[in-house]
Design a protein around this nucleic acid. Structure first.
Lengths: 194, 194
DNA sequence: GGACGTAGAAAACAAGTGTTTGTTTTAGTA
DNA sequence: TACTAAAACAAACACTTGTTTTCTACGTCC
């Protein structure tokens, strides 16, 4: 009979390890971050990481998965109370961007790291990201749009603009929620004057 | 009297070297590409690269600069004949995206590589990119928009959506020009039905 | 109290990294 | 023919990379 109860030790540094990995993968990318970079701040030796993960890629997969979990959670909580389709989209975008820019290193990894950069687990990462973005498919499908408007294009434009903001956003100067609302407003209200 | 004319050799492989560097930096990033990766396909030895460039970063700088030059050229040619502000923006976006997705490996590098990933030349890269994007500042400033519309937000949204398309675009399935026109149309015409 | 799983330390491994150094080949010039 | 610069070769440099192996302290459970 196998043992269902595994008792973790109190001095377990795995959480710290994941946090640091998220911080570095998110800011320097996968190839730009070495295992020694990660373990250094956790006061661990390089080899010790391999007790928790079989390979560097698996560490990334764990961080990436946690990142998807955290964004999904934030977005789900944000749209829960909204009923108006446009307000639901706006709430989701604000939550997405706040998680991405101001809250979680884990979320940054999801946006920053390209699955194609890590062939060994690329398919897994794509599946995770697709599963998350399905929320936005539903949200944009519910929008009352003029006939002929391409909903896929609208969704790709919105998510693209949000995700790219990671490259120019500077904390203090910019405000994540304001940016997200600004993008949604541009799609919702006409900008032209014809 | 010294000789201003230096005759380059005919078997000079520098152009091939730059092409290959652009291809790899664009598809695998800076840290993800080794010097041996680059020189291999050009039938060169690692050390020979250092006759042309003092460091790996300088090779990237050369590729990046050429990338900016190529996109700028394409965009300038595209807007030259247009007079209507919205059509100028559309032409610029189509040219930007076609260069980025279908034409030039060099252009991909400009979008793919983050200046912060290469601290040694980061400031130079930022300056180059800023200089290019100034075209879009002028283009969006000329748009006839309703009072109160934030032009910076509009520009960041447009460029962000375009640049991010690099992550999901697949040749054959997608069409760069159509994507660009779709994005511009969403900003130009109202999508809602209020 | 012996067995066992946890969470690492310690040290090394082979392969790969950017780079340097001395030398060679090629070709135009005086 | 002698000289010089261009462009690369050949081989190594010191260091970093991801990973493996062996050993050890600690707590839990029968």
């Amino acid at each position: 009979m196998n043992r269902p109860l595994r008792v973790p030790r109190v001095d377990n540094r795995l959480p710290m390890l994941l946090d640091e990995a998220a911080r570095l993968f998110g800011s320097q990318g996968f190839a730009g971050t070495s295992i020694r970079d990660i373990v250094r701040r956790v006061d661990m030796l390089p080899g010790s990481l391999y007790y928790h993960f079989a390979a560097k890629e698996d560490l990334l997969a764990a961080v990436y998965e946690e990142g998807v979990r955290r964004i999904s959670e934030r977005v789900a909580a944000a749209i829960k109370d909204q009923v108006d389709p446009w307000q639901r989209v706006e709430a989701a975008c604000v939550a997405h961007l706040e998680a991405l820019l101001e809250e979680s290193d884990y979320a940054q990894v999801v946006i920053r790291v390209r699955p194609s950069d890590v062939p060994a687990i690329g398919a897994r990462l794509v599946a995770l990201r697709d599963r998350y973005e399905r929320v936005f498919v539903d949200l944009t499908d519910a929008l009352p749009l003029r006939a002929g408007t391409d909903r896929r294009t609208l969704r790709l434009m919105l998510l693209g603009a949000l995700n790219w903001s990671q490259t120019w956003y500077r904390p203090g100067r910019d405000d994540a929620a304001a940016i997200a609302r600004g993008f949604v407003a541009l799609l919702r209200r006409p900008s032209n004057q014809e």
